[in-house]
Simulated assay, not measured.
Amino acid sequence: MSELETRIDRLESLDSIRQLPAKYALTLDMRDIDMMVTLFPENVRVGKDASGRKALRAYMDRTLRSPFTGTSHHIGGHIIEFDDPDHAHGIVYSKNEHETPIEGGDDEWVIMQMMYVDNYVRQDGRWYFERRLPLYWYATDLNKPPVGDNKMRWPNSEATEGNFHKLFPSFAEYWERDGDHDGPVPEPAPLEGFLNAMRRGQAAPKVKVRAD
């Protein structure tokens, strides 16, 4: 392709990728599992031993029936970087609300703040999610602010620590030091290397995946 065609292709790819999280949120909230799985390639991995859209549909159908009766996902900032013309990665924020039934008691309205660490792939001219890794900061009843430790507080479950900050070492480093450090200010990251610069080689944390 010419330079102009390459630039146009990149702009069209950015627009297609940016729509994926919004489409995912809409299909999730409307429980249109058939449409949701079409946002992933035909050979999508589902756990350790399964693959394919049918397997993903069955998994999502089971997961979304409990513990939620309704959800609303609000998509925030989206950073996208390209590995090559047909592969990209990114991070997108999501603020979620869940109507959560409580057996033998009043239902709760659980709010959640999280981000998705995504990989995207283009196959046959169409962009898909290749993988979504959810990183959670908190989940709690609307009337119970999640201050303190162990911010993942689902009804009828033991409170646990989230992993919202685990991909980027800067958060822990910031609180470990007393004031500004003496190191040099780094040069701006490469155009397609901002997220890698922030991670500084940090491995992705282990995550128990929920359907959020």
Results as ranks from 00 to 15, higher is better:
T38Y: 12
F40A: 03
E81Y: 03
I79K: 09
F194A: 14
K48C: 04
G47R: 06
E173C: 05
L56I: 02
I111E: 10
K166T: 12
V209D: 04
P186H: 07
V92A: 10
V209A: 09
H74A: 11
F194Q: 12
R122I: 05
V121L: 06
K208D: 15
N150Q: 14
E103I: 15
E130P: 04
K23N: 09
K48F: 04
F168S: 05
R53S: 08
W127C: 04
I17K: 06
G193F: 04
T140D: 14
L4A: 12
T160F: 04
P155Y: 12
L167S: 08
Y136I: 07
L56V: 01
V207L: 05
L167E: 06
Y59G: 01
V185E: 14
L64G: 01
D49P: 00
T100C: 09
P134A: 03
D61Y: 00
T100D: 03
L195V: 15
F68I: 12
F164D: 01
R200E: 15
H89V: 07
D149E: 10
G47F: 02
E81G: 06
G183V: 02
D182H: 15
H73I: 02
T140R: 10
M1S: 09
G105L: 03
S72T: 14
L11T: 11
P145F: 06
D49N: 08
R200W: 02
D9R: 10
F82D: 04
F194S: 14
I102E: 14
V46C: 04
E81R: 06
G77R: 10
G193D: 09
W137C: 05
D124G: 04
W137M: 07
G77T: 13
H181P: 01
W137K: 08
M36P: 00
I111R: 08
G105P: 12
R62I: 03
D83W: 03
M35A: 11
D49K: 07
N150P: 02
E158L: 06
S157C: 07
W154G: 01
D106E: 09
T63R: 07
D107Q: 09
T27L: 08
R126K: 12
P184T: 13
V37G: 03
V209Q: 03
K48G: 11
H165L: 14
N163C: 13
L191I: 12
P145G: 15
E173G: 13
K54V: 14
W175L: 11
D106M: 07
N119I: 00
R210P: 01
T69I: 15
